[in-house]
């Protein structure tokens, strides 16, 4: 009896529940399985097609990704002789781990923080910056011409988006006078996107760049470099590399919702009173809708060129990010927040 109750207590403690159940690991897997299906269905709808259908047909092939994932598990994972084995094998795992870690800093509801630090926003963004390094490791470890090209592209892209991503996020920190996501949500009497739309736009584009989704899927660049850094991967490792972008994107949409869309507000009080984490349901819904919109962009855009993405990053987004900082300071001085 004591064991069960302590287990339940462990599972329901914010430190466990946040990273492992919601919005972390378990939810991430569910999001991963569903969003790829949603993406394919949306693209198919726009493109005069039907998309995945035959696996669980009554639900329109909703568990297609489960089948694909299973296939990844049972597919042979080929390790080419010429690869540098340690980085080649380790990098996808490290990348996935670092894509999962930021969820420890996502507050779900008032007084429900998995990991209590006053700097959850920089910690969240900082952990995400490790992923490009692992991608570089994959590219270099693969020892393949296409992979190395992809690795170089990843390095360039990091330069394009990282600075603006941080500056636009910090402009919101300046606005709310805090570096903590939870306090940011509480500070938003009006959603942040209305207070500082420039910062929201910059952060939005930078996070698409960071996750490598269209129109910035430059690193994978199928038409030139096959699958970029992931060319040599097969089986479950390829599944991991494919999932990283989505996991990252899901994390970023949560952050976007916390900073610009007033997070879990308005709080669903009945659910919150059952269990505090359930108060985060609205946070999740907003983030998911945003995610759906981003994957919908795949049906509208092609891929920008690498130098154009850099130009967008430095010539357009960087000045805008600086402007957003000044806008935040101005708003702070007037005392809007």
């Amino acid at each position: 009896m004591g064991l069960v109750s302590s287990l339940v207590r462990l599972v329901l403690s914010p430190q466990f529940f946040g990273p492992i159940v919601f919005p972390g690991l378990v939810t991430v897997l569910a999001v991963l399985l569903s969003i790829i299906w949603v993406e394919r269905k949306i693209a198919a709808r726009v493109q005069m097609r039907v998309g995945p259908l035959y696996i669980l047909r009554p639900l329109g092939g909703a568990i297609q990704m489960l089948a694909d994932g299973l296939r990844f598990f049972f597919q042979e994972f080929i390790v080419p002789e010429t690869v540098d084995r340690v980085p080649f094998l380790l990098a996808p795992v490290v990348a996935m781990s670092f894509a999962m870690l930021p969820f420890a800093f996502v507050p779900l509801a008032p007084n429900f923080k998995p990991y209590t630090v006053p700097y959850s926003m920089p910690a969240f963004l900082g952990l995400n910056t490790v992923i490009p390094l692992t991608v570089l490791a994959m590219a270099w470890g693969s020892n393949n011409k296409f992979s190395i090209q992809g690795g170089i592209r990843e390095a360039y892209m990091t330069i394009a988006y990282e600075a603006v991503l941080f500056i636009s996020a910090y402009s919101m920190a300046l606005l709310y006078h805090t570096l903590d996501f939870a306090e940011m949500v509480e500070a938003q009497k009006v959603p942040g996107i209305l207070l500082n739309p420039i910062s929201a736009l910059v952060f939005f584009i930078a996070m698409i760049m960071s996750a490598g989704k269209l129109p910035f899927d430059i690193v994978e660049g199928e038409q030139e470099i096959v699958a970029g850094p992931f060319t040599e991967y097969s089986g479950i490792a390829f599944g991991l590399t494919m999932g990283i972008g989505y996991v990252q994107l899901y994390g970023f949409t949560l952050a976007f919702t916390l900073m610009y869309l007033s997070g879990w507000e308005p709080l669903v009080a009945p659910l919150y009173s059952i269990y505090p984490a359930l108060g985060g349901i609205l946070l999740f819904v907003k983030a998911y809708l945003l995610l759906v919109f981003i994957v919908f962009l795949r049906a509208v855009y092609g891929r920008y060129r690498l130098d154009q993405a850099l130009r967008i990053g430095w010539r357009t987004l960087f000045p805008l990010a600086i402007v957003s900082v000044f806008l935040s300071i101005a708003l702070g001085v007037i005392g809007v927040v």
Binding site: Q47, R49, L214, E222, Q223, R303
Partner: peptide
């Protein structure tokens, strides 16, 4: 030409 810049909608529309 659409799919060469990864614009899958143009590809599918034209073929449709």
């Amino acid at each position: 030409a659409g799919i060469f810049v990864n614009h899958s909608t143009m590809f599918m529309w034209c073929f449709g």
